[in-house]
């Protein structure tokens, strides 16, 4: 009787240990599936790279949503449509967007007569849509501007303004 119990306990323990080892091995060797999930979330984001969500761009926000469970309603340019798509993809509940966005499809413009050529705006542009050299006038590549407004705050002479997208 006693030996039967010991055999049973031992057998189960051995099986559990083997399974545990296999799982540990697999989880180390196979790449995490989070990358694919991040890609899919990132695809739904509007790619304005405006950082209004509090993360330094769309992909970092996607990573935060997938890995750290960040709220899905932090993207003002994406609006409610994006929140709903994210909710559908992730099986979470849709909530209204945390901050309402002003103008969704706007375009940054530089008043070139005021520009002092400090290159500050060029440095913050997340998509390299501003060209210009030190001490020389800068300009926005209209077709590449996502309207994130990051350059507007950064300009020391307030010569950047948002205009309606063409």
């Amino acid at each position: 009787m006693g030996s039967a119990v010991i055999t049973a306990v031992l057998t189960i323990s051995v099986i559990a240990l083997a399974a545990g080892l296999v799982l540990a091995f697999v989880s180390r060797r196979l790449p995490a599936a989070t990358d694919a999930a991040v890609d899919r979330v990132n695809e739904l984001l509007p790619q304005t790279q405006c950082a209004q969500c509090g993360f330094p761009g769309c992909r970092p926000y996607a990573e935060a949503i997938v890995n750290d469970g960040a709220d899905i309603n932090l993207c003002p340019p994406g609006g409610d449509a994006t929140v709903q798509r994210l909710a559908r993809l992730l099986g979470r509940e849709a909530q209204p967007v945390a901050v309402a966005s002003g103008s969704p499809a706007a375009l940054a413009k530089i008043d070139e007569s005021l520009c002092i050529g400090c290159t500050h705006c060029r440095e913050v542009c997340p998509v390299d849509a501003i060209v210009g050299a030190q001490q020389l006038m800068h300009t926005v590549i209209a077709s590449e501007c996502t309207g994130c407004e990051l350059c507007v705050e950064r300009c020391p002479v307030d010569c950047i303004f948002m205009s309606e997208a063409a």
Partner: peptide, 17 residues
């Protein structure tokens, strides 16, 4: 159009990073 634009912005953002 919107998707094409977003894709371009994504590529430029990643290239910049």
């Amino acid at each position: 159009d919107e998707r094409a634009r977003a894709e371009r912005a994504r590529q430029r953002f990643e290239a910049r990073n």
